[in-house]
Each structure stands twice: as C-alpha cells, then as structure tokens.
Nucleic acid binder design. Structure first.
Lengths: 201, 201
DNA sequence: CAGACTGTTGAACAGTCGTTCAAACTCGTG
DNA sequence: CACGAGTTTGAACGACTGTTCAACAGTCTG
C-alpha cells in the first residue's frame, strides 16, 4: 500500500508504474524497513518481484539506484511547501502548508524513517549529501516564498530568516516524533511555527 | 585525536584505555566516517590496529559491539545535562547546560554524524531503538530536573513539558546544523530555548 | 516469417561479510 | 624454568555482496 502510494506520486501521469518505478518503490520500502545496511540489489529485486539482473539493467549501479530513490523523498518534501488551493489567500496557503508538515499522516513512521536514512547517508557520502542539500534548499526556498507572499510587510531576507527558523522547528519535530512521540509537544511546536511565521516584528 | 578524547571520556579512571575501549573508539570513528554500511568487523579492527578475531573475542557479536558503541553516545548526551559547576545557582546551571548543547565544539560534524547514525539505526532495529530511547529518556529526565530546580514556580509536569519543548528545539538545531549550517539561525534557536525554559507562565 | 530491438531472467564471477578456531604470544605464579 | 590463564593473531568457512552476461521472451518492422 505504501508502495502504491509512492508509485502514484512518482508517476501521476500514467496509471501503471514502469518497472524502473516499481524497483525504486521497492528500494524505498527496503530502505525504510531495514535501513541502509539492508539495501542489497537482491533484497530490492525480491521486494519488487523481479530478477536480480533487472535492477542493474535499469540503473547503472547500486549507488545510482539509491540516488534515484532518494530524489523521490526530496520530491515529496517539495510537495509540503506547494500550495494546493490556489484560490486561497497567501496567508491561508502558508498556514495550510505549516499544518501539513505536522499532519499525522505525514509524521508517519516509515516516511520519517526514510528521511532519517537519507540524512544519515548525507552525512557520510558526498553524492548523497548533494541530493539532500538540494532538497533542503528547495524546501527552504519554497517555505521562504510562501512566507514572503503571506507577509508583504517583511523584507525578502526577513522572510528567509523566518523560513530558516521554521525549518529548525520542523526538523526538531520530525526527529523527535520518531524517537519519543509526544502529541502535545508536537502541537505546541506547531503553534511556535505559526508564531515564527505570522508574528509581527 | 577524536579517538583519544572519546577514550578519555570512557575510561576516565585509568589513563591507558583497554583493548575493548580502543575497539569501541574505532567502531565510533568508522561509524561517523563511513556510516552503518561501512562498519565491518575488519574495518573496525583495522581502525583499532588489531586483528579481526580480537573484536569477536571482546564482543559476542557485531551487533553487541555496535550496541556498546552506541551506549557511549548516549553517555555523552547525559553529560550535556549534568551541571559542571555545583556551586552555581540552579538557574545558572540550567542556562549553562542549554548553552553547552549549542556550543560549536558540540555541534561538531563527526559527533552529529554519529547521532544521526544512532537515530537511523533506532528506526530500523528494536535493539538499537531501546538503547536510543533509554538515552533520550535519561536526557529528557535530566533536562526536566534542571528546569525543575531552576524554576520552583513550576509544577513538576510543567517542568517536564518545557523540557520536551526544549528537546524538540535542540533536536531541530542538531539536525539542521549538519544539513544546512546557519549560525545566525542557531543563535535564534538558542534564544528560543532559553525563553522556553525561563519565561514565566 | 525473418530480423532487430527492448525487457527480463538467473547462473556465474570475484569479493567481502561475520564468525570460528588452532596456534602463538604475554604475563604472573609456583 | 615450567605451567596455565588470559590475549592476540590470521587463516579458513560458508553465506552474502554488486556486477556481468549468455540465454530467452515479447513486440514491432520490413
């Protein structure tokens, strides 16, 4: 089910996911379940229900396959700061996006586990680090743009500053949500995020 | 040098670290540098300058060795909420501990990388998850005790609530510090931590 | 139908993995 | 010196790793 959902986000245009996409979904599933150490070409192929050789046919190497899988995580992050209701006011859009990042369906164990895997990979290999930094930067830019649109009273660097503060708060919640879940603390963090974004100064 | 420092914390009593300690230090060094996937018995033994078999002589298995190494990270976290100056007032102790967690020497890349590895392992294997949860709980308790002592006006659950909020903020900074370093944002987060701990209510 | 092309399979290769173990080494004690 | 207990070594084992590749299936073109 998680596999289908991920495939749907990745290939919204065509209803039936390509083999390469099915392999990537399998890679993400294995990564979330067993961690980096559990990701072998055979495990991924088996999860996808294909033969070993096929993974190497669609991806140049194991590293390339993992990179492609990690890009997907970044893509899903960008969705978080992409307004859904284009008719809403900028302030409403910003508020909705802030809430979205704290939604229980997003604070889901397997997705947060994936984030953690991406982050830990980024700290170790420069190839993965670039993917992660790119995703973080795009996310930060998207957040800053949202705040900029919702707060005409702020300067552009002022909006960027608030975006950086919100990101720290969100990263803290995302991390803590996996380790020691505490819904009340999450709610208070959401309130702080809104304050960081909306409070005058 | 990092190895020596870690060994010193681990074996403060005797000046020369035991072989088991040297192996654990090596394991942490490899873990921080190459990540979970890079930790093999051979790599650790080579880093420690000993033969392969010796690691298995001192530790029952690879998992047991990693567990022992991870316990050390938790121990170092507890130091963060252990007051150094016992003559200082509780409020001073609390403030000093809050600052300590944001000190550049603590926000060091290799140590944060270690934390990340621990966290990602915790999301995957229950053995590591218990170690991590234990460490987080002890840290949270220590922080709550500090706040409790510094704020006689707060109830005990009130202090625990503030500790949880501070933890989210700190986790956010620790994570963001690795991914997109931003000293100004870190300083603002520290200010928020102090506010969370000291503001009346 | 022949041919070319893409997709797919699974056996095979050379490594590396965790773990075991006989052998060697070190040291304090008899 | 000899003995035994505690350390340390590195070769060896079987299982698993990423990658390659000949073989096969399917489809479309001429």
């Amino acid at each position: 089910m998680a596999t289908q959902a991920a495939a749907a986000t990745a290939e919204a245009s065509s209803s039936v996911p390509s083999t390469a996409d099915r392999i990537l979904d399998a890679a993400l599933a294995v990564l979330a379940r067993d961690g980096v150490a559990g990701v072998s070409m055979r495990a991924v192929a088996s999860e996808a229900g294909v033969a070993v050789g096929l993974a190497n046919y669609h991806f140049e190497s194991k590293t390339a396959m993992i990179c492609a899988a990690l890009e997907r995580i970044g893509d899903r992050d960008i969705d978080l700061v992409t307004p859904r209701d284009i008719d809403a006011t900028p302030a409403e859009q910003l508020r909705e996006c802030l809430h979205r990042a704290f939604d229980p369906s997003f604070l889901d164990a397997s997705y947060l586990s994936l984030r953690l895997q991406l982050w830990s990979l980024a700290g170790v290999d420069s190839v993965y680090a670039e993917i992660n930094q790119g995703a973080q930067r795009r996310y930060l830019d998207g957040l800053a743009a949202l705040i900029d649109a919702a707060r005409p009273d702020l300067s552009q660097p002022g909006a960027a500053r608030r975006a950086a503060d919100v990101l720290i708060e969100q990263n803290g919640v995302w991390l803590t949500a996996i380790l020691v879940p505490d819904q009340a603390a999450i709610d208070r963090a959401l309130a702080r995020c809104e304050a960081l974004a909306f409070d005058p100064l």
